[in-house]
Write a protein that binds this DNA or RNA. Structure first.
Lengths: 340, 340
DNA sequence: GCAGGGAATGTGAACGCTAACAACGCGGCG
DNA sequence: CGCCGCGTTGTTAGCGTTCACATTCCCTGC
C-alpha cells in the first residue's frame, strides 16, 4: 500500500548504475566470472548490499534454460519409507544447490505418474526422481516422453531409466535364514501389496532361502503394509499351531501381528518368532523389540540425487545406472530358537 | 544427439504459424480469453496438439511476476506429524493449481528459517507456509523481510503472521480429564522438548485440568518426542509406586513408556493408565492399544493453504488470520479406572 | 614509440511469454 | 452513405537475465 511497499525490487540495472558499471559486469560478479577487477567487484558487491538486490532466478532460468529445480514424485509421503527417502533427496538436492518440487500421488497408476511428470516438466524442472516402487509406476516410466532425465527409486531393473533401490531379496533372505538357523521348521510370510516391487522382492528372497534349505514354502498371507492387515494375518496365524516363525513384509504389519498374537495369548518369541522389515524408529520399542531388516532410506535418497546430478551434467550421453544399497539385519528380541 | 532429439521444444510462435494466427491469439486461447472466435480457437488447439506444444511457465512467470509455486519449510519431515501436514499441504496446493517447493530444515533456528525463506523468495515463490512449531521458529517469523505472504503452522499467536494449528491445550485437557474421571489421584506427564510450542501447550492443558480438579501437578518428565526418551521416562515412572496415570506428550514416547513398563512388570492399564497424543496409525496396535488424542494433520495442512491462497488474492490488504482445528479424543485400551 | 595481446568492460540481441494498444472487419444507425 | 462501436486479431514493447561479440584499456616486448 504505502509507496515504500510498492517500490519494486531493484534489478541488475539498478545495481549497475549505483556501482557505476554496466549490468553485464554485475552479472559477471554474480556468476563468479574471473575477469573482473577486484576493486570493481567490491564496488558491485557493495551496491548489491546497499540496495538489497536479489537476482531474479526466473529471468535467469528463461535464458539459461534450466531452473536448478528437481522434481520429486512420490506415493503417500505419510509412510515412513517414502518420507525418509524424500527427506534424503531434499537434503542432498539442496546441498547441491537445487530446489525440490514435490508431487505426492494418492494413487499410483500410469496416468497419475504421467500427469505428475508432465506437470513437473511444464514447470521446467531439470530432472526428476520418482519414488514409486509399484510395478505400475515402474512401467509408467518406461516410455516417458519428457526430455528431462529421470531416476527411479525402488523400481526394478526396468531398463529404461536409472534405478537405485535397496536389495530387497537379500534382506528377505537374511531374515528367513536367521529364522531357519534358529531351528524353525519353516517360515511363514505376511506379504505386502502384490503390485509393489519391494513386496515382490521380499517374497522372492524368502522363497529362495526356504528353497535353499529344502523347506516347503507355505502360501504367503496377503497384507497391504498397514498394521491392520498384519493384525488380520496374525489372527489367522495364531490359530495355526504349526506356525513357529513368521517373516513379515514390514514393521507396521509386524506390529499388527504382534498385537494379534498378544490377544490370542501366543507368546513372542517363546511360541512364535517374528521378523519385520524397514526398522522404523518404533520397532525397537515394540513388545517385544522387533528383529528386523533395516533399510537406509536416507542413503537411497542421497544416492538417487547423485545419479541424477551425474546424468544432468553428462547431458544426453548418459547411460542408465543401477545402484543397490545393502540392507542390514538387526537382531532384537522377537526371535528365539524353536522349541524342539 | 540425433537431430530429432535436438529439435527444440516448439514455442508459441510455432503454434501461431501452424494455426495461421498471431502468437498473441495463441496466448489468448491458452489463457481462456473470451474474445476469440470458436473456429479460431479450435484451429489453435489443434496446432498445439499436433506440435505437442507446452507453454513455458518460466517465460510466463517472468512477465506475470508470479510462479504459481508455494514454498513449504518444515522441520524433519521424517516425523509423522510434519509428514502428514506437508502431505495435506501438497494435495491442497496442487488442487488449487500450485506447485510446492520444499525445504526441510535439520535444525530449527532463526538463521535456518531465515535462510530457507530467503532461498524460497529468491526462487520466486508466491507464498510460503512454515511448518515449524518450535518457539524459535515462530520468533524467526516475526520480522521476516520477505515480500511474500507467510502462514505458520502450529505456531502460537505470534501476531505477525497468520497461523493455523491444533488446539493443543484442549487436547491435553481432554486427556488429563479422562484420567482424572477414571478416579486417578493425579496424572503424571512426559513432555516434549521444551522449545516446541506443542509441547508447551500440552503441558499447559495438563496443568490446567489438574488445577481445575484441585490436584497437585507433579514435575513433568522431559522427553524429546522419541520412543527412547519415553522409555527412559517410563523406567523412572515404573519405579514410583504412587504413579497410576500418565499423560504422554506423543504416541512415540508412549510406546517407549509402554515398553519400559512391560520390562518392569508394570501392567497397563491395570496398574498404570497411559494416554498419548497424535494418534499415529500404529497406536491402535500397541500393546495395549493406546488411548490418545488425535490431531488431524491433513486438515491443518489444507487449512493453511486455504489461508495462504486467501492472502494471495487479497494482496497487501490481508489481515492476519488465526485458525484452530479441534483435536479428538480416542479411547482405547491403555486406560482403566484406578484401583482404589 | 608503437604494434600486439590479453584482461576488463560495455553493447545489443535474444530467451518465450503477456499486456497494452492499434488495426481491421462488420453490422447498425443516423 | 458514412460513421460509430464492438468483437476479433495483429503489432509492439517490455519482463530481467545471460550470451556473443565489440570495445577499451593497460601492459609488454622489440
Amino acid at each position: 500500500m504505502s509507496p515504500s511497499h510498492e517500490r519494486r525490487q531493484p534489478v541488475m540495472a539498478d545495481v549497475a548504475v549505483r556501482a557505476g558499471v554496466s549490468h553485464q559486469t554485475v552479472s559477471r560478479v554474480l556468476n563468479g566470472h574471473p575477469n573482473v577487477r577486484a576493486e570493481t567487484r567490491a564496488r558491485v558487491l557493495q551496491a548489491i548490499e546497499q540496495l538489497g538486490y536479489r537476482r531474479n532466478m526466473v529471468a535467469r532460468a528463461l535464458v539459461t534454460k534450466h531452473t536448478r529445480t528437481l522434481g520429486v514424485v512420490s506415493f503417500d509421503t505419510t509412510l515412513y519409507g517414502p518420507a525418509s527417502t524424500v527427506y534424503g533427496i531434499e537434503q542432498a538436492a539442496r546441498a547441491a544447490g537445487y530446489f525440490v518440487s514435490m508431487v505426492s500421488l494418492r494413487t499410483i497408476d500410469r496416468a497419475g505418474v504421467r500427469d505428475a511428470l508432465d506437470y513437473l516438466a511444464e514447470q521446467g524442472v531439470d530432472g526428476v526422481v520418482v519414488v514409486a516402487p509399484q510395478r505400475s509406476a515402474a512401467r509408467a516410466l518406461t516410455d516417458m516422453p519428457t526430455g528431462v532425465p529421470v531416476v527411479a527409486v525402488g523400481a526394478g531393473h526396468t531398463g529404461d531409466v536409472s534405478v537405485v533401490s535397496v536389495e530387497q531379496v537379500e534382506g528377505a533372505r537374511l531374515a528367513t535364514r536367521h529364522l531357519l538357523d534358529l531351528g524353525h521348521e519353516t517360515v511363514w510370510h505376511i506379504s505386502g501389496p502384490s503390485d509393489w516391487l519391494e513386496s515382490e522382492g521380499r517374497v522372492q528372497g524368502w522363497r529362495a532361502a526356504l528353497a535353499a534349505a529344502g523347506r516347503p514354502a507355505p502360501d504367503p498371507l496377503p497384507g497391504d503394509w498397514s498394521p491392520r492387515s498384519g493384525y488380520r494375518a496374525g489372527l489367522r496365524l495364531a490359530a495355526m499351531p504349526e506356525v513357529t516363525a513368521v517373516f513379515v513384509g514390514n514393521d507396521q504389519m509386524a506390529l499388527g501381528a504382534l498385537r494379534a498374537f498378544a490377544e490370542r495369548g501366543v507368546r513372542v518369541p517363546e511360541q512364535i518368532s517374528i521378523v519385520g522389515f524397514d526398522d522404523i524408529p518404533e520397532s525397537e520399542f515394540f513388545t517385544p523389540p522387533l528383529t528386523t531388516v533395516r533399510q537406509d532410506f536416507g542413503a537411497v535418497g542421497r544416492c538417487s540425487i547423485e545419479v541424477l546430478l551425474r546424468q544432468l551434467e553428462a547431458g544426453p550421453e548418459w547411460s542408465h545406472e543401477r545402484h543397490v544399497v545393502p540392507p542390514r539385519f538387526v537382531v532384537r528380541a522377537s526371535t528365539a530358537p524353536a522349541c524342539p
